[in-house]
Simulated assay, not measured.
Amino acid sequence: MTKTITFNELRNIKDRLPEGSMRKISKELNLNVETVRNYFGGVNYREGKSIGVHVEQGPNGGIVELDDTTILECAFRILDEA
């Protein structure tokens, strides 16, 4: 499922996650932790991958189109549990 969100909204979600959430998501989805960080705006492509995140410059950090919302859904679930 594709979702469009502003970059600032995506970073806000990441910033609200409890410590250890990136590792929790990476373990649950069997992904490299740097890949999960890259999903939320990180840029460590030597250790992690880019997975379906497309950024277009604009207000509020620009528009981000997410090809797959699985990581975002995990983040929302963690926020709901916190």
Score class of each variant (00 low, 15 high):
Ala75Val: 08
Ile51Arg: 07
Asn32Met: 08
Cys74Gly: 00
Glu73Tyr: 04
Ile78Pro: 02
Glu73Ala: 11
Met1Thr: 10
Gly61Cys: 09
Phe7Ile: 03
Lys3Ala: 08
Gly61Glu: 10
Arg23Asp: 08
Leu29Lys: 02
Phe40Gly: 04
Arg37Leu: 09
Glu34Gln: 12
Gly52Arg: 00
Arg23His: 10
Thr6His: 10
Thr6Ile: 07
Ile25Thr: 01
Pro59Asp: 12
Asn30Thr: 02
Gln57Phe: 09
Asn60Cys: 08
Val33Arg: 13
Glu47Asp: 14
Thr6Val: 05
Asn38Gln: 07
Arg37Asp: 06
Gly20Lys: 05
Lys3Asn: 00
Thr2Leu: 09
Asp80Lys: 14
Thr69Val: 13
Glu34Ser: 14
Gln57Val: 12
Thr35Lys: 01
Tyr39Asn: 04
Asn12Leu: 13
Leu29Asn: 02
Asp15Tyr: 11
Asp68Ala: 02
Ile51Val: 10
Thr69Cys: 04
Ser50Met: 09
Asn32Trp: 01
Phe76Cys: 10
Arg37Phe: 06
Asp15Cys: 09
Glu65Met: 09
Val33Phe: 02
Ser50Arg: 13
Leu10Asp: 02
Phe76Arg: 14
Asn12Ile: 11
Gly58Trp: 10
Thr2Met: 11
Ile78Tyr: 06
Glu9Cys: 08
Asn8His: 13
Glu9Asp: 15
Leu10Cys: 08
Phe76Ala: 08
Arg46His: 14
Lys24Trp: 03
Leu31Gly: 03
Glu73Met: 04
Val64Thr: 10
Asp68Val: 01
Gly48Asp: 02
Arg46Asp: 12
Ala75Cys: 10
Leu31Phe: 09
Leu17Phe: 07
Gly41Ile: 05
Ile71Phe: 00
Leu10Tyr: 04
Asp80Met: 11
Arg11Asn: 14
Lys3Ser: 07
Leu10Ala: 07
Val53Tyr: 01
Gly62Asn: 11
Lys3Trp: 03
Met1Ser: 13
Glu65Thr: 15
Gly41Asn: 05
Glu81Lys: 14
Ala75Gly: 11
Val36Ile: 09
Leu66Arg: 00
Val33Asn: 08
Ser21Lys: 02
Asp67Thr: 05
Ile13Met: 03
Thr6Leu: 04
Glu73Asp: 14
Glu47Phe: 14
Asn44Met: 07
Val36Gln: 00
Gly52Cys: 00
Arg23Leu: 10
Gly58Gln: 07
Glu9Val: 11
Leu29Arg: 04
Ile63His: 08
Asn8Gln: 14
Ile25Arg: 08
Leu29Asp: 05
Lys14Asn: 13
Leu79Ser: 10
Ile71Gln: 01
Leu10Gln: 03
His54Tyr: 12
Thr2Ala: 09
Leu29Pro: 08
Thr70Leu: 04
Gln57Arg: 15
Ile51His: 08
Ala75Pro: 09
Ser21Cys: 05
Ser21Ala: 14
Arg11Ile: 12
Gly48Pro: 03
Val36Arg: 03
Thr69Trp: 02
Tyr45Asn: 09
Asp15Asn: 15
